[in-house]
Amino acid sequence: MIDLIYKIGHFLLITVFATALGLLFMGIARKIIARIQKRYGPPVYQPYLDVLKLFGKDAITHGFIFDFGAVMALGGVIATLFFIPLGSWQLYSMEGTVLLVIYLLAVASLGMAMGTVGSGNPQASIGISRALTQMLGYELPFLVILFSLIFRYQTSSIWGLMQAQAGSFLNWNLFAYPMMALVAFVVLIGMMGKKPFDAMIAPSEIGSGPVVESGGKYLGMLLLQKSITIIIELALYVNLFLGGADNIFSFSFKMLIVWILATMFGSLFPRFRIEDGVKFFWKWPLGIAILQALYIII
């Protein structure tokens, strides 16, 4: 019983922490982009206010699938979160293999896609169609990278992959396999839907795509989902390429560095058309990833 309560507490703690950190990161990103554009920018805590406001607003729903989609999206990422080692915090991370995490993330995507398309707004459908297409673009190089890593270190658990880089920072995959880290970084940008890979949410073209019908708490939940997703993706990158960390603080710091870089990188580019984005992913990142994989397996 105590065990159970401890576990539930742990669940909640991790969820709250990741959400808070994710929102903070989003605020930092807005600030950074503003500074790059020579603006002052909103305060760093702006996303918290946004979430608070959104949960305070009225909301409409388009039927049970709309509700279910939102719950599935948030639930999916929270479930995924528990499988990721966050510094010294690892709840189920010993069990979680990296492939599992990739597919668990899809639960959230599917939930969001289903809910938003369930609204009946064609712009949501267009957004989802673009998002899924782009996903095919970036997941492929990423999975090839995972293939190489798993094959190289003979383990598929994230924890194991992290441990394999222990010792000197020169063991980090960032330095051991810099090309791979670079590819993964590009993939990360695609995963997080930052420019130039943000055609699926193009606000002025398709009314922000998937979230076109989400207002009030639905948008709030999707914001929370987004913030946790950011943490998951960053944590994955840090664990796989930056050797993870012993404690949550240095882990968060590493995530922050990656996040800032990704944000800066993302703010420099215009938007790719969808098929051009996919083509790009299949040309450079995938090509490099395959070369790297060939190098590792031979």
């Binding site: 409409i60 729903t61 939102a70 719950v71 599935m72 639930g75 479930a79 639905y218």
Partner: peptide
Amino acid sequence: AGFVIALLVFGLAKKSKLV
């Protein structure tokens, strides 16, 4: 666990209107 947390978030928020 994940779904329960998400459901809690959803349930505690304001009720939405069906359109």
